[in-house]
Amino acid sequence: TKVFYNGTYVEFNNPEKAKKYAEKVAKKVGGTFTEKNGQFHVE
């Protein structure tokens, strides 16, 4: 499961961990995250 952010991504074996990371990054940058095709995108 990949989490895309700012033109790069971090890959996780565990979708649950990926979601938590996406939430954390989104919170940090004051943005939101969306799930597309089983991957997370932070905006």
Rank of each mutant, 00 (worst) to 15 (best):
N37K: 07
Y9W: 12
F12S: 01
F4A: 02
E16S: 10
N37C: 14
G31D: 02
A22C: 04
T8K: 13
K27I: 10
A18Q: 01
E35G: 04
G38Q: 05
N13T: 13
F4T: 03
V10G: 02
T32V: 11
Y9R: 03
H41K: 05
K2W: 08
E16I: 11
F12L: 04
F12D: 00
E16G: 09
E23V: 08
K36V: 13
Y5I: 09
K19S: 05
G31Q: 04
G7K: 06
N6D: 08
Q39D: 15
F40S: 01
P15Y: 15
E11G: 06
V42L: 04
E43C: 15
N13L: 11
T32D: 05
K19V: 05
K36P: 01
Y5D: 01
A18E: 01
K36C: 14
K24W: 15
V42D: 01
V25P: 01
Q39H: 15
A18I: 00
G38E: 04
K20L: 13
F33C: 13
F40T: 01
K36N: 07
G31T: 07
Y9I: 11
K20N: 10
K28Y: 12
Q39G: 09
K24A: 14
A22Y: 02
V29P: 02
A22G: 03
V29W: 09
V42R: 01
A22I: 02
K24Y: 15
K19P: 00
V3I: 03
G30D: 05
G38N: 06
Y9A: 08
G7Q: 06
V42T: 02
T8N: 10
K17W: 11
T1C: 15
T34W: 12
Y9T: 08
F33V: 15
A26T: 04
F12Q: 00
A18R: 02
E35S: 07
V10C: 14
A18W: 02
V29L: 12
N37T: 04
G30A: 06
V29R: 06
T8M: 12
A22M: 03
K27V: 08
K2C: 15
N6R: 13
H41P: 00
T8V: 10
V42K: 02
P15D: 05
K19C: 11
G31I: 04
E16R: 11
N37H: 08
H41G: 02
E23W: 08
T1L: 06
Q39M: 10
V10N: 04
K17L: 14
F33D: 00
T1Y: 15
A26F: 03
T1K: 05
A22L: 02
A18C: 05
K24S: 13
E16M: 11
Y5G: 01
Y5F: 13
K20T: 09
G7M: 05
V3F: 02
A26C: 11
H41Q: 06
H41N: 06
K17S: 14
N13V: 11
K20P: 02
K19W: 07
F40H: 02
V29Q: 06
Y5T: 04
F4G: 00
K36T: 08
V42W: 04
Y5S: 03
G30E: 05
A26G: 03
F40K: 00
A26Q: 02
N6L: 12
V10F: 09
Y5P: 00
F33H: 03
T32A: 07
N6E: 07
V10Q: 07
N6Y: 10
G31V: 05
Y5E: 02
E11K: 11
V42F: 04
P15V: 12
T34F: 15
A22W: 02
N37Y: 08
N37W: 07
G30P: 01
F12K: 01
V3D: 00
V25Y: 08
P15E: 08
V42P: 00
